[in-house]
Amino acid sequence: MRKWLLWGVVAVAGIALPYILDDYQTFQIARVTTTALPIASLVLLTGWSGQVSAGQGALFGLGAYTCAIAIVSGGLPWPVAVLLAMVVGLAAGLLLGLPALRLSGMSLGLITLSLAVLFPLLLSRFKDLTGGPFGIQTPPVRTPAGIQLSSAQFLYLVTFVALAAVFALLALLCRGRTGRALDALRLQPAMARTTGVDTRRLSVLVVGMSGAVAALGGALNALVLQSVVPDAYAFTFSLALLTGAVIGGIRSWAGALVGAVFVVYVPQLVSDTVGDTLAGHWTQVGYALVLLLTLYFAPQGLAGLGSRITTKIGERRAHQNFAP
């Protein structure tokens, strides 16, 4: 009951924000909502089905480039381009997930790491398609006629709706029967098979879905930034996403938002403190530290800490009620 309330508050706040903030700040929170998508894909893939991916950044980038190319070279309207990106992400996820079926944990991690390293190189190589190192600029998304919103506000709300829909879908998926099956897949795969769980199909399904979700995030992010460049999707970005997921809580949807805030704002903060040239590298060191600290002291991430705090408050209240 309390969870619904909390989510309701977040939803209302989310919709209200663009009216309070200026266009630049709205742009920033749109970056957060779109970055929350690949992190949510990690929550599903790693937190729930137990498969580690070091390549969600590449899938994000794949979605981004598909969307950009579809709009600029293909002349497609942006909603179609975004859908196309999702389909490509789904296909890529399935393609990656299939060989990973034969082995446990590491194999998907290995394939996705390879993809993550390879992806920016492929982007730079196929200049004609991808614009090479300079990437592609996408036109801004115009607010449809009749709606009284600025371009930035409208686009943010689109990303907000997409995120809400994905969260709702995934949360629903991970409840009840499928949720139990995922838990079994992650923790006791042999037992899962003997209780009728088609572990192979579930695994592949999850990898496919996570690919689609990550690509969706990438596509929307491309629209928000109005540009796609290979450097943005270096394999360190995949690791940054993993960091965000772990910090937020690898099994927490709310944690995906927390992680996204982290991934979007920390590089900014670091760059403001340290100056531009080495900012990226200091950020990496920062990520590494936070990641390690989280692992050692708060393994369930900030969401875990959050629930521990609310539990403690609840317990204290209970004690107070029974105080003599």
Partner: peptide, 15 residues
């Protein structure tokens, strides 16, 4: 037949 199908056909077990 795969294990999960056997389970659906009525084979159950403990470990």
């Amino acid at each position: 037949i795969a294990a999960f199908r056997r389970a659906r056909l009525g084979v159950a077990r403990t470990f």
